[in-house]
């Protein structure tokens, strides 16, 4: 469903070349709940960015739903992100002028979903993430945890192939972080949505059903665990 084959990523930093990923191969199936873990600088963000089609690999292949990403142009990549990928960011990244409802509906506006359907789906997902009654609040009127719930709803509302979350709990206190993870587990179970999230927090890794460890740009372990 998502396949990463021998992917390399090098950054040029002046005269030096940084090898952020040194040949990573990974296959992710529908419905997985996978954590990419590893120390700082090991390449987690880089890998997520490549899968998320917001960055391009130096070598290797990535395909999403059987579609190779390598040859795609800017507009095609935007279309893939719009239709197949959901993002949850470390710093929430909601649009400050829009309400919770509008932020979630934004995803559907981009895909051209008819208003009535968008409205219904948005209300339903907001209810599911526990924000019923807060639809009209702006991000500034919501706590960090609530903002991240909006972000999760925004990612899920379009029923994406995969939700990518780069350190989704790093800006939250641990209790709120747990709550967000539990929400993601719940959504994964209910909708069978694939989740890929990165972390270097042991507590967060414990939620994963598959734990892929990166070290210095290489996968050092990849294990599945029963829930």
């Amino acid at each position: 469903m998502i396949s990463v084959t021998n992917v390399q990523k090098q950054y040029r930093d002046g005269d030096t070349t940084v090898h952020a990923l040194r040949g990573v191969s990974l296959s992710i199936e529908q419905g997985e709940f996978i954590s990419i873990a590893g120390p700082s600088g090991s390449g987690k963000t880089t890998l997520l960015n490549l899968i998320g089609c917001i960055d391009t690999a130096t070598a290797g292949e990535i395909s999403i739903d059987g579609r190779a990403v390598a040859g795609c142009g800017k507009r095609e990549l935007a279309a893939i992100r719009r239709e197949k990928l959901g993002f949850v960011f470390q710093s929430f990244n909601l649009i400050p002028v829009l309400t919770a409802f509008e932020n979630v509906a934004f995803s559907l506006t981009l895909t051209g979903t008819p208003d009535a359907e968008a409205r219904e789906r948005t209300m339903r997902i907001l209810d599911e993430v526990g924000l019923a009654g807060m639809e009209d609040r702006r991000p500034s009127q919501l706590s960090g945890g609530q903002q991240q719930r909006v972000a999760v709803a925004r990612a899920l509302v379009k029923e994406p192939t995969v939700v990518l979350a780069d350190e989704p709990t790093a800006n939250l206190d641990s209790r709120t972080g747990h709550a967000i993870l539990e929400l993601m587990v719940e959504m994964n179970r209910r909708h069978n949505t694939t989740f890929v999230f990165s972390t270097h927090d042991q507590m967060v890794m414990d939620y994963a059903r598959r734990l892929t460890m990166l070290h210095d740009g290489e996968i050092v372990s990849d294990e599945r665990r029963s829930a």
Binding site: R82, F87, N93, I95, F106, L110
Partner: peptide, 14 residues
């Protein structure tokens, strides 16, 4: 800039 990056990540056309 970050807002622009986010909107692009969500697939909004440039």
């Amino acid at each position: 800039t970050r807002e622009i990056g986010m909107m692009r990540a969500l697939g909004m056309d440039d």
